[in-house]
Structures are given as C-alpha cells and as structure tokens.
Design a protein around this nucleic acid. Structure first.
Lengths: 200, 200, 200, 200
DNA sequence: ATCTAAGCGAGACGGTACGTCACGTCTTGGG
DNA sequence: CCCAAGACGTGACGTACCGTCTCGCTTAGAT
C-alpha cells in the first residue's frame, strides 16, 4: 500500500473509496463462486457489497468486465515459480502448477467459462493474456532456454510446440472429455518432448 | 428402476409442425450470423420466423439451447471425409477440414463462443460431443488404424496423442493468440507425428 | 338426483354430447367455487372435464359466457316460492329468499362479480335477466297484486318502488359496505312500505 | 438546543418521477376511453406513455389496480356541491350530480364495470370508497342535518334510508334494466322522502 | 476555515428479454 | 364422423437486469 507516487493530475474532489472497490470485488467473487458467471449481476453485486450501482460503473464498464476483473484479481496471488534445475524440469513444474490451478471447480471450470467471452474487448484480451496465456509466455522462455541448453532440437517451431503443450490442457479444462490431472500432464510432456529432443 | 418400455407413444394430438421447426432454426441461424450469440433472443427468433414464442419453448427450453441446436444443425451438413490413402494422410485431410470449419469468423469464433457454455446441461454436452469432439472421435479411429498399419508406435497413449492434435486447434480458436490455418495444422501434425512414429 | 339410468348400453360411435356438456359445466362450477371467476379458464375446464377445447367452443363462444352459463345453471334449481298469504307477506318471503341466496360467499359475492360483466352480449343479458332481475320481475307481480288488494296506494310508481326494494339489496351485495341479512331486509321493506301505503 | 424531530422519512434515492406518473395516468385514461377496461393493458400503457413497464409496476401492482387508480384520479376533479338551501334540497342536488356523473357511457357504464372487481384488495376498497361510497357518505351528513332540522322523522334508520336512496341508482347503472336520468332521481327521492317525513 | 468538486449509497428511470399463461383456431388419429 | 389431445400464432403477463440519471449526503483538496 505504498502507492504514494506523485501524480501529475490535480485530482480534485473526493477520491474513490478503496473500501468500496474491495467490497465490490469480494461480493463479485462470492457470487461467482456461488452461482457461476451468470450470478455476477450488477444488481446483486451492488446489493451484496452495499454499494451504489454507479460506483461500480465508475470502475468497470459492464458486468462482464467486472466478472473478468474478479477472476484476474483472484489470479494475481499466483506467482511463485521455482526456477531451479534444468529448463525441462522447470517446465514440468510449471505445468503441474497450471494443472493444480485449473483442476479445482471454481479455479478451472468456472473461470474458464469466461475464456470464450463475447467480444474482443480490451478487458477480455487482458483476461486471456493474464489468466490463460501467462503460463504459455513463461513456457516460451523455458523452451528457449532448453534449446540453448541443447535439450531440444534447434529447428523446432516453438509456437507449435507451446500449443502442443498448453493446448491440450485447456482443451481438457474446457471440454472436459477427460480429466486434467498430474498424470496426464506428465504423460503429455513426455510425449511432446520425445518429438522435440535431438535424435542422436 | 427403469421405466418399462411402455413408450409406444400413442402420439395423439396435432403433430409438431416441421415447417415451424425449420423456420425457427433458419431464423436463429440468420440472427446468429448477423449479431452473434447474443442476438439469438427468443423474441427476435419468434418475430423473424413468424412463429409464436410458446412454439419455440415447446421444442427448446431456453434461448441458449436453441442457439446450440442451431449450431449443431448447421454442423450436420458437414461432409464426410474421403477415406482413401493411408491413415495418416486421412488424418491430415480431416484436420484441414476442421481448420476450414473453424477458420471462418462465424463458423469459428462465433460458434466457439459457445464452447464454454454455462452449464453441464444435456444440450451443452450434446453440443460438445457433436461439434467439438466429433473430429476427435474420428481421429481416434484413424490413429488406431495407423497403429495397426505400423505407422505409429504401438506403445503411444492414444488419448494423449489425440489431445496433442486437437487440443492446439481449439486452443487457437478459443484464445486466438495465433491464427488457425492450414500451415499451422500441417506443421502441428508433422511435429506430433515425429514423436509418435517408430524410431527405426 | 339420479340421472344415470340407462347409460349402460354402448352406442357404437356417436353421441357423447350430453355427457360432455355436463362434465364441462361441473368442471366449470368446481373451478368457480375454488378460485373465483378468473379460475374458469377454457384450458382448466377442458383439462378437468377431460374434454377437448373445441368441444367447449362448440357450445359457448368464450370463457366468460361459459362462466355465466355455469352460474345460471346453478341458479335454476331455485324456484320454489310459497305463494300463500297476502301479497305483502309474500313479498317479504321472497325478499328473504333473495337474501339467503346472496348472503353466502359463493352464492353472492362470487356470482355477482359477474354482474358488471364486460359487454352487452346476449349471454350477459340473459344472466342479468335470470339471476338478477328474476326476483324483481316476481316482485312486480306481487306489487301489482298488493295495489289491487288496496295494500298500496294506487298512484305509486311501481318501477321506482321495485328499485327501492331490490336496489339496496344488490347495492349491499356488490359494494359490501354493510351486511346483507334478514334484519336489513325486513327493516328495508318496512321503511319502503311506510311510504307506499295509503295514508288514511 | 433545538431538539431535532426525527419523524420524517429519510427518503433516499431518486424520487419517483411525477411526469412519468402523470403520463401513465393520462395514457391509461385514454385507453380506457377508447377501448374500455380491457384495453388498459400494461404493455399498451407503457408504450403510449413512453414509459418502461417496471416504472408502472413500481406504482401499481397490476393492470386492474392501474385502471381503478385511473378512474379514481379522474374522479377527484369532481366539483363540490353547493351547500346552500335546506338539507333536502341539497340532497336532491347531490343526487342529480351523481346521476350526471354516471349517466354518460364512459363515465358510467365503463367505470362501473369495475364496481364488482375481483378481490378485496386495498385498491379495490379504495375505489369503492372514493367513487361509489363518497356520495353515500355525503348523503349521511345531509340526512343527519335533515333530522336535526325536523324535515325527517327522528326514528328512521339512516343506513337503510341511505341504501334506499343510493342503492337504486347503482342498481340501474349496473344492471341497466331501466335508464338512469333526472326524472328517475327526482321521483325516487320524492318516494323515499314520503316515507321518511313526519306524519303530521 | 471555508468552499466546492467529485464520490458516495440509494433507488427510480426507459428499455429489452425473459419464460408463462390463456386465448381461440386448426389438425391429427382413434373409437 | 365425431372428439380427445394437443400444437399453432397471438399477445399480455409480471420479473430480472441492464446501464443511466437524479437525489441528498460526505469527504478532502484547493482556495
């Protein structure tokens, strides 16, 4: 709570209430948990947070944006990566983290209901980038390091490889035809790496 | 336990109008194309199809179900694959068909908005099975044939392999971080097969 | 009470008409009793009477007409008048009968909800004539006889007098500002007659 | 210091729009005039008044209540009586006013369709009190004054007398068996008074 | 120490769509 | 050849949220 940065704006008038913002996000998160994405209505959030609707609209343009923001908020705590060992070991570690994150009901199914959100709005893109593609971006770095380390052929298409790793994860989360668990993640990685490793 | 099959339905009363059913689906499809999933409202469909709302509700329980049914209906026209050549060649052919199907804006983006539908309802499952998993099921057969033909190692995990093939496709469709095109599909298949083929 | 005399023999196809009619009226009467006039819907009657809606429409043009017919039907049993003693005594007797008839909840309040029915349709007029004005017509005869008998002045306006007698009854039934009971009926008649009787 | 009285309601939130309320009542009145009571539908009123349906429901619980309120509103414009002359003369004046009010097609027939409204709801009672019983209450005062003035016997039952005066009026309005006009009102009053006046 | 602009909770506003109900008509197939 | 069953188009119902707009009040930085 430092945030004491000198802002250039004059910023007159009463500042936005941080308490209100927090209450809104908490209320939205509760509703999300209880009734899924469709339960996060402005009316319900306002009532539960004991906040006026305009106060919500001052910070989020519509209900969907608020829901996404709620999901992203809940996601920011999740950062710790281990960073030790070889790149491929790190990759497996990160994959297991992703599995863990999305294997729970509300951590997975519910938040991914949102994956296919209606529009290409800025907030939707932000959601995708932060919640869904973050791991892929991390994987990109790991894969690059693995190439440098000689663990992977130099001629692989990194983008395709990344999709081969992360695509199946979200495929299972979204479609749910088969369970998403550690065993699957490990098997997947093994199978993918078999094709990526140097043949000699 | 199970209801004894007394279901020789007498089928009394006036039968459902096929003309109405067709008009509804056409209207819904048009609206879907024009304004996306959120344009498929019962009111609009009823008006456009010149049909009473109760007539729609008699066949579909809510707007979302109708939208899904519309997508599934449009999907049944899908041509069956060629079935010539080797299993792996057939697999590539089928993959390209899937790409073609989802690469269009309305054929892809729009219909997959629905991928992450709200509930585990029967209709949602049907949608997933028919529209999303159908290709995967076909792929299963092809992969099995490829194993029999000796084109693929006998010890591969078929489920994981299938996810490695189809997962990335839907990953790109849903998240849209990179384009879904023929080149990607071919490169993906090549990379996947490299890991699956016998080492000799 | 028994009208199930010779319905045993099969009729090989044709006239179920009277049974249907009776079933409809019974169902309508039941619904009227249970939920008031607004409960008498064609759908409910058809379902309860196990009769097709068109069968009802064949006999009554709409739901309101059916409801009125139901009320009229129930009213026809009511005929017995005493016809003894002087005209004025008979008048009091008849008045008490009317009070009794409308003092019950469903016999009064409910059926008179209909008094102010929507239109001047033929059926509505019939209802008014039979259920509401029947007693007034009887009263007309009694008053005429009373004049002949010298119990009432010869110069009274009979129509006004009748309205003075029956108007207050329905006024209380409809508006309900004060109870409709024997005491009121007797007091009313006494007061009215005081003005009508010869002054000498 | 000054004890602040806290009796007033805080009355938070945006106040109800009087413009909307007026527009609704005007629209309802117009529809009532044009198509009778059944034309006063929430949809039609909302459309014509350019008002959202919930705005109407915020003030009236259902269509019937709105229709009654419309009639009552239209009734408040009613001119107060003259108040000069003797009580009995005043009574006649008031009676003629009532006749005038209900003799018109829309001022009478239409508004009295409502007399027998479905339920004992608060709004229905209010309607009865204001539109139908108001004149009776005024009549009560006049009759009491007439007794004090010695124009009427002291032993009459006032309630019965009032019903004898006003009952026939509404009887004719509701049932319509005979016309409601000045002549009738005057004749009625004369006949009633004949019984009420002192015999000497 | 005031002024005053912006934020606050509350809630009414005009809308749109919902899903239900009953209407009165039409269309089957079984008795 | 009826007639029960039930689907049809119509249209109003009353509800839920939407996103916007007053209200009368804080609140806190600028005057």
């Amino acid at each position: 709570m430092i945030d004491r940065v000198k802002t250039e704006k004059p910023k007159r008038g009463r500042p936005r209430s941080q308490a209100a913002r927090r209450a809104i996000l908490v209320a939205a998160a509760d509703l999300l948990e209880e009734g899924g994405i469709s339960a996060v209505t402005m009316e319900a959030v306002a009532t539960r947070a004991k906040v006026g609707k305009p106060t919500i609209y001052r910070s989020w343009p519509n209900a969907q944006a608020l829901a996404m923001a709620t999901l992203m908020e809940a996601d920011t705590a999740q950062t710790t990566v281990q960073e030790s060992g070889s790149p491929l070991a790190d990759l497996e570690g990160q994959l297991l983290k992703v599995v863990e994150k999305f294997a729970t009901k509300r951590g997975g199914q519910v938040r991914l209901m949102l994956a296919a959100a209606e529009q290409d709005s800025e907030i939707a893109k932000g959601f995708r980038n932060q919640v869904i593609l973050k791991s892929r971006v991390e994987g990109h770095a790991l894969l690059t390091r693995a190439i440098s380390a000689g663990d992977i052929r130099t001629d692989v298409d990194i983008e395709i490889s990344l999709d081969m790793i992360y695509g199946p994860l979200f495929y299972r989360v979204l479609i749910g035809h088969l369970p998403l668990d550690e065993e699957f993640a490990k098997g997947l990685l093994k199978e993918v790496l078999r094709g990526l490793q140097p043949s000699d």
